[in-house]
Structures are given as structure tokens and as C-alpha cells.
Amino acid sequence: MVTSGKGGVGKTTTSANLGTGLASAGHKVVLVDTDIGLRNLDVVMGLENRIVYDIVDVTSGNCRLKQALIKDKRFENLYLLPAAQTKDKTAVSPEQMRTLAAELKEEFDFAVIDCPAGIEQGFRNAIAGADRAVVVTTPEVSAVRDADRIIGLLEANELRNPRLIINRIRPQMVKRGDMMDISDILDILAIELLGVVPEDESIVISTNRGEPAVMDHSSKAGEAYRRITRRIRGEEVPLMNLDVPDGLMDRLKRLIGMR
């Protein structure tokens, strides 16, 4: 599951890029959008116009799982289970989510669950279905605070060892000392760093086009997501050069992959 607490920090962007990255590496992947009422993973994937059934149709028995899964435009082995747009947030229960996750596990190598913001029902649903958690934050005090809360809740729910992605880092601001330092964030959250994604306008462009940046080899954020994908697959990959001062870069390189 990809979660954050705070909204707008990059959960959906991360889900789309991770899912696409894993699919391009040959895995059979499903992206699950659990942000009921605020669905947008389908838009980011450029699949909005193919939606017939959604996750609520599946959990309520309106259709079979296979009918609701949408095949990706680029990859044969990548599917999307879209969120419902018109139904109530509470239309799916944790119990139903657990059943759905078990069914997905039979079919797929990876199920990437995009969470809604907050710590309410949608978050509890995602927890119910997940084996592993990725926490996304930006280098802002409020986002880190919410991430911390989320990590506490994940731990309380036996989802141990969540991993962290710090999104929207601006090297210039880090250099000037205007941005919360990555090592400050790691000091507080004290979980394994999965990756650092720079602020990059190619994310906005690719989001609007419905083509995740991970496939764009000229995109810096895409490069970061390619490395994150490889780390998820268990490879040891060095942190990309973020154009931040050497001292900080050295410390970060040591932190990556450290438990």
C-alpha cells in the first residue's frame, strides 16, 4: 500500500510509477485505487475512458473481478482496478478488502494499493489488504508529522517496517537550507528510506498525458522512480545524484537501505 496521511504529497503519482515500473520489469501487476469518491489513478494512467465497473462493484458482487480490471495501454501485464467515483467512502469494508486482496494475490505478483489521505475508513481498508507499506512524504513539517502518525498506526496494525519515499525535494532549496533536511526527516521518522524523488515538472506533464514518468528516460523524477522500483524488487541501488552538497549526499547514501 502507498500511504501518507496528508493529501497531495504524491501517493497516486508514486502508485502509478511504481506499478508501471514493476510491470516494465516483467511482473504481473495490478494497481488498486481505494480513494473512493476522489478517484484519479485512472486519469494518471490515461485509462479513464475505459472504466465500466469499479472496486465497489467487485466487493459488492455486482461484477466479477476480471470484468472490472482494466488492461493498461502499454503493458500486457499491468491492470487497474479503479475506485468508485459516485459511491460513499464507506462502501467497502476492511473485511471485503481482505477478501479482495487474497483474490488479487492469486493472480498477480504485485498489487499496488493507492490510499486516500487521512486515517479513516479508506486507510483502514488499505491496511486490511496490505502486506507491505510505502509511506510518502514531502519535506514539509506538516507532511512529516502526518507521516509519523501514519507510521505509528501501521506499526499498531502489524504492518512492520514501512519504507519511506521523500517526494518533491528541491535541491536548490536544500542547498540554501530553506527546506527540511532529508536527514532531519529520517531522524524523526526513523524508517528505511526507499527513495528520494525530486520536484520535477515532467511529473505534471506526464500526469496530464496519462503516461507515468518512470517510462520517460529524460525525466529526473522518472529516474528516481526507476531506482525505487529496483529497490522494491530487492536490488541494492545507490541514490541518484540530487545536486545537493556532498556532505549531505554522502550521509544519504549511507542511509539508503539501512534499517
Binding site: 508529522r145 502526518d146 509519523d148 502518525r149 507510521i151 505509528g152 498506526l153 506499526e155 526513523a190
Partner: peptide, 10 residues
Amino acid sequence: FVKRTLRSGT
């Protein structure tokens, strides 16, 4: 004795 880190909200 509390043998863990207290995270935000606790």
C-alpha cells in the same frame, strides 16, 4: 517503561 518511540498522535 515504554520500549518504543512515541509517534505523532500518541
